[in-house]
Design a protein around this nucleic acid. Sequence first.
DNA 1: GTAATATACCTAGCGGTGCTATGTATATTG
DNA 2: CAATATACATAGCACCGCTAGGTATATTAC
Lengths: 111, 111
Amino acid sequence: MVDYLTNWKAQIRRGYLELCILMLIQKYERIYGFDLLEKLKEIDLEMKEGTLYPLLNRMTTDKVLKAVWETENVKGHPRKFYSLTKEGIKLLHEMKNEYIRMNDIFEKIAK
Amino acid sequence: MVDYLTNWKAQIRRGYLELCILMLIQKYERIYGFDLLEKLKEIDLEMKEGTLYPLLNRMTTDKVLKAVWETENVKGHPRKFYSLTKEGIKLLHEMKNEYIRMNDIFEKIAK
DNA sequence: GTAATATACCTAGCGGTGCTATGTATATTG
DNA sequence: CAATATACATAGCACCGCTAGGTATATTAC
């Protein structure tokens, strides 16, 4: 068993990571997983491969994202590019609203 | 299976609820579960009994909270009052720091 | 007097996700 | 040709929010 704080940090990331990923994909319009991992590291939001790839696959299955393999003009391993579906854009909008609502409550309690 | 957004809302509440509960207990110094449920409702952060009570018990077991039964001067069912332990105060401090760090990242992506 | 309501706490079990650990494949560099 | 960098994938564990029930005491309604 890991310590209390470490476990809590894993819990609070639930849902939050998904929100951040969707916002980043919207920002870049289209991006592949490995690149996303680097962008996440740059903004101090490190994420494990074993967390990101299953998340991206799940969101694709659920039609929140659409995925396109890119093999041409690419040296090395082929890349899978993700972008938001129309449904994903709508979902992200509602998720952001809920996040902001929750943060407002946090700040109301904190002050 | 519930819809995507409903499930996501349950996920993003993980850890966040624990943080809010600890902040509220600190604010009121000592409070019992049922009262906490009402205070949560007042600030539009409704929580189910089946979520709150196991959470309070877990945090008590983990020495984050201390619990005291109060039977005197109380009509009806006895009440269990909770307050933060020294360890709980320290933990809450670190949890708030992490939450704020995460919210900063959210805002950096959002703008 | 007893049925209904309000107050107050509790628990078994389900479902979903972040992480660990490991695996696969291609191209470049030493 | 071994090592490294790039790139994606998955099985399984641990944990927590919620559902759906339950117990117990005191007051109010009829």
